[in-house]
Design a protein around this nucleic acid. Structure first.
Lengths: 339, 339
DNA sequence: AAAAGTTGCGAGAACGTTCTCGTACATGCT
DNA sequence: AGCATGTACGAGAACGTTCTCGCAACTTTT
């Protein structure tokens, strides 16, 4: 059986004063004399007093918990984002509560609908990749739950704040790098249709091709999922196409790694014959052979910014729709070297 | 401003009955007629009622939150463990609250000491690798906080439940595999001294060597950290030693990958000249070239088991010290092939 | 028909905290 | 001296639940 922890009442009893005074003293309000305040603090320390979050939460309609809704944490990008969030949350006395959707829209919906509103002050959310609709998030907003989306954000029907990286510019720079490295027949293997992130990167890809008057072929733009396995499948499909591309730009490093593995398996020299470019700058990009050129995403910073934005909204207590875009950076490695 | 959510009182008012009856109806207690219960449930659903965790927590001295204290989540093993925990917790209506120590003993200590006891029903903990003492955990136990350690567990001075993998057997099998693959001069690069996990694997390594009458050399057993970078440093040290080993068994895959990178950089053929063996079965072990032989850890299962153990303790409400050991499995790949 | 048991429900306290109001006393001003 | 103002504190309600009693209204037993 858990013992009772020391409460404000115990302190009051010990000093023979009222609980109200103790409460004031602990929160350092003006309406208390320095002497009593010091006495209270001394006794509180002696009795190892810790405030009861359930009680404070009850009266303030608030906990110190922020929810993080995310498809999975078993990859570099997402776990780094969370680490950034944790850093900011922790600094401000907030805790992070984890909700994993396993990238399943149904599970995401179930979790959001069953969210106990009163146990969360706000939510940081990254939608699942095959999301069809966002009503469950709209419900949350209708109940005035502070909500910030990050990375995979829903379309503009949901009026709320978002934090993303410059997916369009990142993709544009990536393709430009491929072009400047001498590749001319550039394919793009990406995630599911309908996701802003995917569409923005695809648009950057297309616009870069057009700027340099390079061929745009519909069978060189493949939508599927985000996994390494799907990267392998997409790469195989590209190799079968009649007009084989000489470079592949993948929506993320895992798909790029999948492509590299397929090329190596077929005896195609990565870089020399077919260039490969990723997106993320997962540590794996330095380990895979050849090392993978990629676009470094500011994962940690994105986590920090998302959390900071949410906390700001909580502070102000008024709803403002903000959008933060963080810059990515090109990292050239061996997989895009022709010689 | 957040609006007020529907409470039990609203339901009571709507049906003109007492809050006590509503409370009973919602929890399906015997002392309520089927008709009123159905009416209450109907109204509750209509008003989208969600219980207030702060209130229930206050009266029950419990939240539905479990803490997870862990050095970092940006690696395959830890993030998979958490995914397993999340699965079990979620099934039982519990939430996971994340605490990252960044593998810093000071930060770990600060977090544990400042843990608001009343906002957590129990704690799952993995100690930081350079931990010197465990008093802060003892304090937690003294206050009857249910506590389960996993993976990196403290020594036996702390009387509490633990969940680990069979580190000794796993290491023994790994070294046995190296020996059976034809390697005879086997080194071990491992984590910091004093950690049970490290010592158990080191002991498995030593016992395997002794069983097969192979040389045991003190400069072939290097203690350092768990990172890839430290793996590289350790490998370089081994290559400089007068009697160069012909195989390296690393305490985890990241260090093994570090070793492989060093060997490749020096033009040494991994497998043929020097065999490399890891521990974890990180997905990277299939991507690195050559692919890495390793010992597959039951990360997901370990997460599940730890959480289950903690929940069991909460249920019974009595303290029992249990220890769960999960089996690991050998995975042979290219990095231990001599031909 | 009276006694005993059962069933369904309500009143009110409790959990630990904050907040509003009230009050006793001291101090400042005319 | 008389009044306003300020200071330090206490009493008690409130937050949303659960839990312990108690009490009617039935039902069963004798």
């Amino acid at each position: 059986m858990r013992p009772k922890y020391t409460t404000i009442k115990d302190i009051a009893k010990a000093l023979d004063i009222s609980v109200a005074t103790v409460s004031r003293a602990l929160r350092d309000t003006h309406d208390v004399s320095p002497e009593t305040r010091d006495k209270v603090l001394a006794v509180a320390a002696a009795l190892n007093y810790k405030p009861n979050f359930n009680a404070t939460g009850l009266v303030h309609q608030s906990t110190h918990h922020l929810g993080v809704l995310i498809p999975t944490i078993t990859n570099y990008y997402f776990s780094t984002v969370i680490t950034g969030m944790q850093e900011v949350a922790h600094q401000h006395g907030f805790n992070l509560v984890l909700y994993l959707t396993n990238d399943s829209p149904e599970r995401e919906q179930r979790i959001v609908q069953n969210l106990v509103r009163t146990s969360l002050d706000g939510l940081l959310a990254c939608v699942s990749s095959r999301a069809a609709e966002y009503n469950h998030f709209q419900e949350l907003l209708d109940e005035s739950m502070p909500l910030v989306f990050f990375d995979r954000v829903p379309d503009d029907t949901i009026k709320t704040s978002k934090v993303v990286q410059d997916d369009y510019e990142g993709a544009f720079k990536a393709v430009e790098h491929l072009i400047q490295s001498g590749y001319t027949k550039i394919a793009h293997i990406t995630g599911p249709k309908g996701l802003q992130l995917t569409e923005n990167r695809a648009q950057g890809y297309l616009d870069a091709l057009r700027k340099y008057n390079l061929p745009v072929r519909s069978d060189w733009l493949i939508y599927s999922g985000f996994s390494q396995q799907e990267g392998e499948m997409d790469a195989e499909k590209l190799l079968e196409s009649r007009d084989r591309p000489d470079a592949v730009f993948a929506v993320n490093d895992r798909k790029a790694v999948g492509a590299i593995l397929v090329l190596k398996r077929k005896g195609i020299r990565v870089g020399k014959e077919i260039g490969v470019m990723g997106f993320t700058n997962d540590p794996i990009s330095e380990i895979v052979s050849p090392t993978l050129s990629t676009v470094a995403e500011p994962a940690y910073e994105l986590g920090r910014a998302s959390c900071q934005l949410l906390l700001n909204q909580l502070k102000k207590n008024t709803f403002v729709q903000e959008q933060v875009v963080l810059r990515s950076q090109l990292v050239a490695r061996a997989s895009t070297q022709r010689i």
